[in-house]
Write a protein that binds this DNA or RNA. Sequence first.
DNA 1: ACCGGTGCCGGG
DNA 2: CCCGGCACCGGT
Lengths: 436, 436
Amino acid sequence: MNQQNELENTASKQKGTRKRQNNHAESNSANNHKVSSSKAPKKIACTECRQQKAKCDAHDKAPGPCTRCMKRGIECRLNSDYKRTFKRAKIAQMEKEYEQMRMKLAYQNSPVVQSQNINPSNPPPISSTVIQRNNSPFLPPISALSPSATIPAQPVPVGSVQSIPPYFSPSPFPSSATRMIPSPPPHHPPMRHTPLKEEFYPIPSNGPPSSSANSQFSSSPQILKSPQLYQTALGKVSEDKSLFSNQYLGPSVVRVATGEQQTFFGKKIPEPRSVPKLNLEEGLAECSPKSLGEVTLSSDQIRVLFLDFVACYHPMLPIVDINKGIERLHRLCPILFWTIMFTALRRHKSATLSKFEAQKLYFSLTSSLKSALAELTISPITRYAPSELEEPILNVSSVYSVQALLIYTLWPPLTSSLSADNSWNSIGLALFQAIH
Amino acid sequence: MNQQNELENTASKQKGTRKRQNNHAESNSANNHKVSSSKAPKKIACTECRQQKAKCDAHDKAPGPCTRCMKRGIECRLNSDYKRTFKRAKIAQMEKEYEQMRMKLAYQNSPVVQSQNINPSNPPPISSTVIQRNNSPFLPPISALSPSATIPAQPVPVGSVQSIPPYFSPSPFPSSATRMIPSPPPHHPPMRHTPLKEEFYPIPSNGPPSSSANSQFSSSPQILKSPQLYQTALGKVSEDKSLFSNQYLGPSVVRVATGEQQTFFGKKIPEPRSVPKLNLEEGLAECSPKSLGEVTLSSDQIRVLFLDFVACYHPMLPIVDINKGIERLHRLCPILFWTIMFTALRRHKSATLSKFEAQKLYFSLTSSLKSALAELTISPITRYAPSELEEPILNVSSVYSVQALLIYTLWPPLTSSLSADNSWNSIGLALFQAIH
DNA sequence: ACCGGTGCCGGG
DNA sequence: CCCGGCACCGGT
Ligand SMILES: [Zn+2]
Ligand SMILES: [Zn+2]
Ligand SMILES: [Zn+2]
Ligand SMILES: [Zn+2]
């Protein structure tokens, strides 16, 4: 018979029992929310066991490695954000991409190698691959939105690589995502993206939103009370760089510079000046070091970046409830947290984090975050797919995810790519309206 | 320090211990497979608890109802195949479809209700909705394929209902599926389906009405049925019914009757004659009654249907290891099992199951199975999506699922729909190659 | 009441 | 080693 234990499943959460989770110091700061909820003694499996979906007793074996890891003689890391990778799929996909790339390269080489690297600062160290996708035969109707007078708005600086030639698409999937890249094998620098699946029929026009009055169901518990308008696919793409000028305003921003007030999709931007001082004094900035993929940020780095975000970016898109504090935000939605870190890293420079380090981290984070976000746009939708959703209903789970996407859309990666794919913008739009 | 509590988490699902699983009579027939390992005392949650994803102790509470069910005063059913439904999504989607349908109906009513019921036997009792999809602008190269000289191949009587006019379509989603329909509330007779997302392009020809017969409009619980015509990327269009002639060959079949051997996408078909007698004597045909959605089949019905499949359909597409026996096949992949039942029901007629009953069951199964299959095409892919799949790699889990899809593709529903969407065929193709 | 997410069994 | 599933916790 089985003597499966599990006796330990401790269950009981909060309450008196506290554990150390990952031993890091934790100033629980009785945040206003509910009653204090000490950390999370949640039992979690180590990364290796998660990958193998195997039973893990790391939680018991105190600070020691879990049985499996010990047996394998590998390091037993505990990371509550770790997500397993689908090895087989990833391998197959990489193979295919590789093959495809090689083929294309051998076949004809004049692939445009946009050289204009406006950014005078420093050349992207790691770099994130740039694959353009632009199957939709029409450009986004930037119309309604004033043609951002501030941005150079170059058509397509891209070093494009149209994808999939003689491929047969099983179905028009908008999927994309390259998973969080945990760090299984050595890690491959490139790591493509390829968002859409080419469909082999003309497809006249793709229906632009056109609000459907259906606004049934839920709503965001907080935040975002913008008037609706985004009636287009949030058009605009554009490259990055060169926007030093207008402070932190990212490329995607479509400022209605029609002379009036700053606007973001019809929403007034609360004057970048009003830096919400935020009661950071209350330890809301406290946090433990965290890592995504290969990148790890120390408590101090996180703190300083968060403050940077609050001061420089948040004012422009005050949708995140920064008062929740770093730790809580991270718990609620790691992706949001990382998007914030990512955004802050854009041009950060401080004693704690040099510009160079920031840049390095920024690029390192790029692919991971990109994948995570891409996954976000597909994952939740697919989850609900079973019951079929016309307009995916975007239960992109919490609003947090939406926030992350919006932030990302506003301040996309400096190395272009991804956001260049208009589908992303559409998604952004959809999400935006989903929030209301 | 945590004083884990709970008395009740007792756990232990042990092995040797036998339990009653689902109280149904069970002829466990020591299946040959391995040694020992009688049935599956696996601890399973009751349907209600599954739906609510709540802890269920039905396994312990012997034959009695689980604690939760008892508290709620509802029947505590145990069904290992039960899959929870995504209520919110389903509701939203139904609402939308309803609205859409109503709108369309009010806008212009000339709904086409072709009457010609070729099948002289009996009128389809339940019927499944029929939504035509026909976006591919090109006709299939029926050329190379010999037009199975047996089929009359009438042009297109189509009784269609174009769908979704000014719809949103955030992205070209091929999704579909309306989940297994467990049997939530009272249950609505209509229960539409809407396979694809209509990309509102013109769509060339639309089968004009003709008909006579019942031109019911408005809220008709059930809708027209009609022969279908799908043309797919794989080429081939075709009508259903009337293929009695060429035995059981379904419409999607593309026989390369170039004089050589039978082929199915390049794979040789082992001569329909060779009816693999199969050692049914060994109790491989043993099984317990099973149900999918609202449909339930008795042991005898299953047995006779399975034999029918083995004798008439299997020879044409010998991809299923029928020697595994009914029970095992069902365990390995319920969908495969149901696809087999579904296919066999097509034209079944026996003492155990009259033609009428078969038809009735066939139509009842249609939507459930359709949903399940649709889900299959999206679900697994999405699962893998995280690691990004260009051509979804189709790890549609086990081969069994693929088999189910192939069978379904070969012998699509008599009432058209869904398979009318060429993407399905593409999928079929893709899957096929996935198998090798 | 729902359900996202996580642990991890069982099978390939 | 991989992973589909499935039980269930914890948050809404
Ligand atoms: Zn472990
Ligand atoms: Zn470990
Ligand atoms: Zn229960
Ligand atoms: Zn119950």
